[in-house]
Design a protein around this nucleic acid. Structure first.
Length: 576
DNA sequence: CTAGGGTTAG
């Protein structure tokens, strides 16, 4: 290494920039730095080479530092340098410096330069200044694939998929053809819209037509989109056909399997990628832990945890949140707390994971205690966080505290309560026997009550033997969820508990008329006084509608064998 | 000599 430095220093006698490209390949960047300092004739050429060299190699901080330095020396940067620096600004999310460069560019004129315009569009898009990005884009005299892709990616990455798709339409109308970069962005925009699957299929055809179907960026984006639509088989087809499987492709598959409750498959792929010596990365860990939580397989979760520690990934905030979530879901809240305490960086999501862990583990008081600490730590709680807090109140039966926190949302944090938080309050009032109050809340909130609210309300009616209100809730549920058995069963139980046997028979008859039948292939276990439903076929843990359907049948089955479900076994307790 | 892309947590 030393020899390289000496050799390069020899070359540098006359021109620094002539060797600067090689310089970065041969010696560490730290040495490049000191070499520059020791070089006697620091002119514009050498400064620019250093800036571009660092920028090109992704050392954004150094590139920006040198750029500031050269401006301080009064050296005028060329457009080449400004282009590199803009890219570094966008990576560092330094909108301030980026705007200053923009101002400089306006003075010297840049509209004809596609490189500079695209870099500006990208900068503003990455810094979430989409109006500004659009202004630059619209001001361009002509567009190329890069500028189109920059504006499309900008909207897609900021959760504005619809607008991204409108730009994409504009691109298709123009002479410019989308390339693999464009498609990689467009599929992430796709998954946000209603008819995602239909559109993705159409665009998939276009991908093949334009011959970019082998690009791994396009494939992983497409796989992710299909997975989010629940089209697991399509994703598998794409994955099997892919030639060079990189770590992101594996991660996309593992995340997809986890999101679709196919924990076993996620694990199989993880083992496969390890056999091929690929990864894992932070992304792999968080997806895989997600799968552990839903399978409630603690052993595997612990194995991953030790691997994470071994690889030094135990301070990544995504990984930590997943660990907390996994341990909580496996019922070891104390272990989750240890991981939480050990994490140096703590954001809103991590705090919320931990509060949820306490709430769902039946330790509502600890959850609320943690929330107070969150506030003391200077964090600003958001909607999801309040859902956790209110859930903790529901589990602990803290009515007054629940009301106080609910009011606090709007009074202290300017958060307008959403259906999720109203649902908690309806549940809380209902369970405490304040059914009128719960009903009042449903009638006066700014939106229509949803199925979750009616379900919990019906459950509360059953606990407190409120026939009339229960009947009404059940009929509302029958209207929205005709395929769901839960309201029928709850209503039947409600009648049964007060001895209205004729009505029980009526409800059973209604169920039979609707053709609601028992589902096979599911079983249940009781762990920590909670019912867990799982599929016998693959051991996976069904979610949402599937879990409700399965649970309906199980409760029926249990009742038929003389098992009387307690209130805590109503559906919203099981959906964890 | 300069520009654009895919996967993760409550």
């Amino acid at each position: 290494m030393l020899f390289s430095v000496i050799r390069i220093r020899g070359c540098l006698k006359r021109r620094f920039s002539s060797v600067s490209c090689h310089l970065f390949d041969e010696i560490p960047q730290r040495s490049a730095h000191s070499l520059f300092d020791s070089f006697p004739e620091r002119g514009p050429d050498s400064c620019e080479s250093i800036v571009i060299g660092f920028a090109k190699r992704g050392n954004v901080a150094e590139a920006l530092k040198f750029f500031r330095g050269m401006i301080g020396f009064g050296i005028q940067p060329t457009k080449y340098t400004l282009c590199s620096v803009l890219s570094s600004c966008s990576k560092a999310l330094d909108r301030h410096l980026g705007s200053q460069i923009h101002a400089r560019l306006i003075r010297i004129g840049y509209e004809e330069n596609l490189f500079l315009s695209s870099a500006l569009v990208d900068l503003y898009a990455k810094c979430e200044a989409l109006t500004e990005a659009r202004r630059v884009f619209d001001g361009m005299k002509e567009h190329d694939p890069v500028s189109w892709t920059s504006i499309i990616a900008g909207f897609a990455q900021n959760g504005r998929g619809k607008e991204a798709l409108i730009f994409f339409k504009g691109m298709l109308k123009s002479e410019i053809k989308p390339n693999c970069f464009t498609f990689a962005s467009i599929f992430s925009a796709c998954k946000e819209i209603e008819s995602a699957f239909e559109l993705a299929s159409l665009l998939h055809a276009l991908v093949i037509k334009l011959g970019v179907e082998l690009n791994s960026f396009v494939i992983s984006s497409l796989i992710d989109c299909y997975m989010k639509c629940g089209e697991i088989n399509r994703a598998i087809l794409l994955f099997d056909a892919a030639v060079g499987r990189d770590v992101i492709l594996y991660n996309a598959m593992i995340a997809g399997f986890s999101q679709n409750s196919q924990g076993e498959e996620a694990w199989k792929l993880f083992i496969e990628m390890r056999e091929h010596g690929i990864g894992p990365t932070y992304f792999t860990f968080s997806s895989l832990l997600n799968a552990c939580g839903s399978l409630a397989v603690l052993q595997q979760g612990k194995q991953i945890h030790s691997l994470i520690t071994k690889m030094g990934s135990d301070q990544n905030i995504f990984v930590v949140s997943s660990l907390v979530d996994m341990y909580s879901k496996c019922g070891i809240v104390n272990e989750a707390r240890l991981v939480f305490d050990h994490s140096i960086e703590k954001n809103n999501i991590l705090w919320t994971s931990m509060i949820t862990g306490y709430a769902q583990g039946g330790r509502g008081a600890d959850g609320l205690d943690l929330f107070e600490q969150l506030v003391k730590a200077g964090m600003i709680p958001d909607h999801v966080c309040f859902t956790s807090v209110l859930t903790a109140c529901v589990h602990a039966g803290f009515l007054d505290k629940g009301i106080a926190y609910f009011d606090m949302m709007e009074n202290k944090y300017n958060l307008i309560p959403e259906p999720d938080q109203y649902a908690c309050m309806i549940d809380l009032y209902g369970r405490k026997g304040h059914l009128r109050k719960a009903k009042e809340l449903m009638e006066h909130m700014p939106f229509e009550p949803n199925a979750v609210m009616w379900s919990s309300f019906l459950g509360s009616c059953r606990i407190h033997g409120e026939i009339d209100l229960g009947k009404e809730a059940a009929s509302r549920l029958f209207a929205v969820q005709w395929h769901n058995m839960v309201p029928y069963i709850t209503l039947a139980n409600l009648y049964a508990e007060v001895g209205m046997w004729n009505e029980v028979v009526e409800v059973r008859k209604m169920m039979r008329c609707k053709g609601l039948k028992k589902r096979t292939g599911c079983s249940w276990v009781e762990v920590n006084k909670r019912v867990h439903v799982f599929s016998v076929r693959d051991g996976s843990h069904p979610q949402s509608n599937e879990i409700y359907d399965a649970l309906d049948n199980l409760i029926l089955e249990m009742r038929e064998t003389g098992y009387v479900p307690k209130p805590k076994y109503v559906l919203h307790d099981v959906d964890t």
